[in-house]
Design a protein around this nucleic acid. Structure first.
Lengths: 222, 222
DNA sequence: CGCATGTTCAAGGGAATGCTTGAAGAGTGC
DNA sequence: GCACTCTTCAAGCATTCCCTTGAACATGCG
């Protein structure tokens, strides 16, 4: 024991986990699965990839143990193997934000200019929720809201925002949140709201981070 | 903003961090750097790889931002870019331990049978250190001890263990620790000690985990 | 059963990865 | 300057990775 070949094999095994996350498409899959389980073709559509390719990526994630499957009639539903995988993905994102030189540029290219968006930290929002002086909007698709949301938040998917604007009180501060720090939904919502004269800000990160921090969540459909 | 190409590029950027850790040799480099900074050829010797190859891996880690360098006369010293990188590596290891099916086999092949080794958790050791009823041995190379060690531990590199055995009291419980959960030094030490009639156990993980948990450390050479 | 839907498998081609070898840079000491 | 050490660069080759295409497999429904 303690020989080179075995040590190399062990570290290859450990590195296998990182390798599984080491592809943009697979990273995106894990990122989406953080919001809840999905079928293969839901994922394929979300990633804008062929079903075959998506399936292959999922097979690899499955072999590595990062995801698990269950059958639901016709379809196969994939989910993260455990919350720990979501934590790992968050750690990857954090290191990238800290240390990857070009990430700011890439993020800006996708998200646009965020400098004019006001943001709220988890802590601030938690405090203001306790005081009840803020309206919280979950602007993700409704199924994700149903699978879990910030306690007290109202579902208002960004696609329906303009149609259901009357439900948003104009005299109170509004905070929108979505999937995480690299999700555009809340950005779009905040831009649309401020343009119309609302006092809107976005939560710095998203629902998964809120839940992971142990802050109050709700699973019931409202 | 919000278009597919930019989103793919962003996630490729995020995944780049995972990709950098997604190779056994680079993972090993990061694992070693968790113990402290190293020159290229120290790393090459530790990994049993050519200097050129090691240098290439280091270049990639550098480009990704996971490590940084400084010159020391003739040589270039590499270090982790921040403690957050060590945290990320720990997260990878944890997920692998939880979810990679074959990891137990790989670990056993490298580490040997651990079933007969008694272990101590961080929490237990911290408590027993406060009570002063235990001798703690740092069995890593002396330079790593000098760079930081559990407060109250004594340096006794595993290579010199048999030569300096007289320094270890036979009537007290002994706990040995080393680099981390996949390091053999403490295992070897505990086996050698128990064979000679000492009451020895190993700390479940290693020094980096101890330090990361905020438990008392010391940097002074004894 | 036959057909539709959803998922996986298999083969192929272009690109990237990992290691090797040998040479070129960079810094130190005589 | 010159020899020496440590590190990086460059080219080459076998292997792996990623996506595509088209077929096979599984499940549900009429």
């Amino acid at each position: 024991m303690g020989d080179r070949a075995a040590k190399d094999a062990l570290f290859d095994g450990l590195a296998g986990v990182a390798k599984a996350l080491g592809n943009g498409r697979r990273a995106e899959i894990v990122d989406v699965l953080t919001q809840g389980e999905r079928s293969v073709d839901e994922l394929a559509r979300e990633l804008n990839q062929s079903v075959a390719n998506t399936s292959q990526h999922l097979q690899l994630l499955l072999r590595t143990g990062l995801v698990r499957t269950r059958r639901d009639g016709n379809r196969v539903i994939y989910a993260l193997a455990s919350p720990r995988v979501a934590t790992l993905w968050a750690a990857v994102r954090d290191v990238a934000a800290d240390h990857v030189a070009e990430l700011d540029r890439l993020a800006a290219a996708y998200l646009g200019d965020r400098s004019k968006l006001s943001t709220v930290t988890r802590k601030e929002l938690a405090a203001r929720l306790r005081d009840g002086d803020v309206v919280v909007l979950d602007v993700r698709p409704e199924t994700e809201y149903a699978a879990g949301h910030i306690a007290g938040a109202v579902s208002l998917p960004v696609g329906e925002l303009t149609r259901r604007l009357r439900n948003v009180p104009k005299d109170r501060d509004v905070v929108a949140y979505c999937r995480g720090p690299y999700c555009v939904y809340a950005d779009d919502a905040v831009r649309a709201l401020t343009r119309r004269g609302y006092r809107a800000a976005r939560l710095e990160d998203g629902f998964p981070e809120w839940a992971r921090a142990g802050l109050p969540v709700d699973r019931k459909r409202v």
